[in-house]
Amino acid sequence: MTSELTSAEPLDPAELDFEGALRPSSLSEFVGQRRVVGQLDLLLRAAEMDSRTPDHILLAGPPGLGKTTLAMIVAHDSGRALRMSSGPAISHAGDLAALLSSLVPGEVLFIDEIHRMARSAEEMLYLAMEDFRIDIMVGKGVGASSIPLELPPFTLVGATTRTGLLANPLRDRFGFTGHLEFYETDELLQVLTRSASLLGLDIPQPALAEIAGRSRGTPRIANRLLRRVRDYMTVHPHEEARTAVDSALALYDVDPRGLDRLDTSVLRALVERFGGGPVGVSSLAVSLGEDAETIEAVVEPFLIREGLMVRTPRGRVATSEAWKHLNLTPPAADQTLL
């Protein structure tokens, strides 16, 4: 089971309500991603001045960086209705046809995880994005016929964590692609300052900075950690804020570098059970009783970004920084590794 603080975990309704309350409603309120925000602002303002629907938008980047929030803002700042769906929910072309045919003129259609949409639906989307029409097949075999259906102008906002899985014809039909990047600590501090204010929490900046430093560059994780701190302060109202932050994060196994229980377990297994590697991800997963896909998709990217692990043709290898982080001394033969 993955840690409850990882960004790939499905969100329960309480988490969704909590995050929804903290979402900025306009580009002027959005913190971070300055380049993408500036590009979106220009795109939306130009469309408004020309009295046309904005170009189709693709938002790409790791989970938790604000793709869904930006999609909502596109609809809000352009004064248009928003329709939301997801790639896995569109399992065949008929699902997409029903969705597109019900759009009103100028509506913003947001498809999350668009790379997981059925290939038949993806091919139908090409024509819809380019010419605002779709062809519906009626009948089967030699008697089948195609009926063209005109669509009202709309703006598609697609979000993906795996840009490489999108077919080139689909990717090329987006007028703008925004690549979201991990946040710097000072940007996360701004996010947490705003969230704490909205939640009515009196937490000094040094304590918020500590949360920001452990948030893996991800606003979703930062806000979730803030919620855990809020819970701790509710149960222990007389504890000083900085102490409460440290105690809450320690309780949920988030170390000063942002590693959670699963991250640390993977790193410790790599170092202690496999001598620092190289070792395959399958062997790591079996040794921990975890799913290999979870380790590869959730844990590895962060450990590699932190310089604690590298991928080699022979498998995963712990860096000298990983040994230091665990307060261990690498074998003599590995002293010079990275």
Results as ranks from 00 to 15, higher is better:
255 D>K: 02
298 V>P: 04
327 N>K: 14
170 L>N: 15
208 L>G: 11
314 R>I: 00
44 L>W: 14
126 Y>S: 05
302 F>V: 07
175 G>N: 13
233 M>Q: 13
134 I>L: 11
101 S>A: 07
24 P>V: 03
256 P>W: 08
179 H>M: 04
236 H>D: 02
101 S>H: 01
86 S>W: 08
149 L>N: 00
111 I>A: 11
150 E>N: 07
254 V>G: 10
84 M>K: 14
257 R>S: 13
181 E>V: 05
273 R>Y: 08
271 V>Y: 10
149 L>K: 13
116 R>N: 05
111 I>H: 11
7 S>N: 05
321 E>Y: 05
12 D>H: 05
223 N>M: 14
249 L>Q: 06
95 D>T: 00
268 R>G: 07
49 M>G: 11
132 F>M: 15
319 T>N: 13
270 L>I: 01
284 L>S: 12
11 L>C: 04
55 D>K: 12
210 E>M: 04
336 T>E: 15
151 L>A: 00
10 P>G: 14
57 I>G: 11
244 A>Q: 10
122 E>D: 13
214 R>E: 07
159 A>L: 12
146 S>T: 07
198 L>P: 00
3 S>W: 14
222 A>P: 11
187 E>M: 01
80 R>A: 03
247 S>G: 02
237 P>N: 06
106 G>T: 02
119 R>W: 04
131 D>I: 00
46 A>V: 08
281 V>G: 12
174 F>R: 15
12 D>S: 12
275 G>T: 06
42 L>C: 11
62 P>I: 01
224 R>D: 14
7 S>H: 02
116 R>Q: 04
149 L>I: 04
203 I>L: 07
337 L>A: 10
168 N>Q: 12
103 L>R: 08
133 R>M: 05
279 V>G: 02
57 I>Y: 13
